[in-house]
Design a protein around this nucleic acid. Structure first.
Length: 149
DNA sequence: GCCAACGTTGGC
DNA sequence: GCCAACGTTGGC
């Protein structure tokens, strides 16, 4: 079963927000490669919830996919920060998934800690210049990260 | 706020 | 199809 990692700016949506809501739509992805990964996700699969663009970037917890990819409605909403002027109802290229809270780490795993781990050298997240907001994580990487909690 | 790296746009 | 210019991401 594939594993994933998804980034969110905690000021926008954090692991605490997901914990409090229990379930949420993961929308606003506006990169084709990331979108394609969203479309590869299946119900029941797990992902690391990564906090980006913040004081303490790192993995903050775990979530689960509870609904596979469907058309992202925010692309058509003019009042949404994710509005896409080129998207049309009959031609909306963007996808969203629904996710549920699984676990919040007592202490988030900092990016520095992840970079220091030899077993994670191939992790897409730590590659130079990697900006993907949705990426796959191998089973071995998943286990290695869990062991760092 | 800076800046490296990347993706997208648009002229040609 | 090339590629320069521009906008965005995201760590620091």
């Amino acid at each position: 079963m594939p594993y994933w990692l998804m980034k969110s700016e905690p000021d926008e949506f954090s692991i605490l927000d997901l914990e409090q809501k229990g379930r949420a739509r993961w929308d606003g992805v506006r990169n084709y490669q990331a979108r394609n990964f969203l479309r590869d996700m299946a119900e029941g699969e797990l992902f690391f919830f990564y906090h980006s663009s913040c004081a303490q970037p790192g993995i903050a917890g775990i979530g689960r996919i509870v609904r596979s990819a469907y058309v992202d409605p925010t692309a058509l909403q003019t009042d949404s920060p994710y509005f896409d002027t080129k998207a049309r109802a009959e031609k909306n290229p963007w996808s969203a998934v629904d996710v549920a809270f699984v676990e919040r780490f007592q202490t988030p795993l900092s990016l520095a800690r992840l970079k220091a781990e030899t077993a994670l050298a191939q992790l897409a997240l730590v590659q130079k210049g990697s900006r993907l907001s949705v990426m796959p994580v191998s089973a071995a990487e998943w286990a290695a990260i869990l062991a760092l909690r």
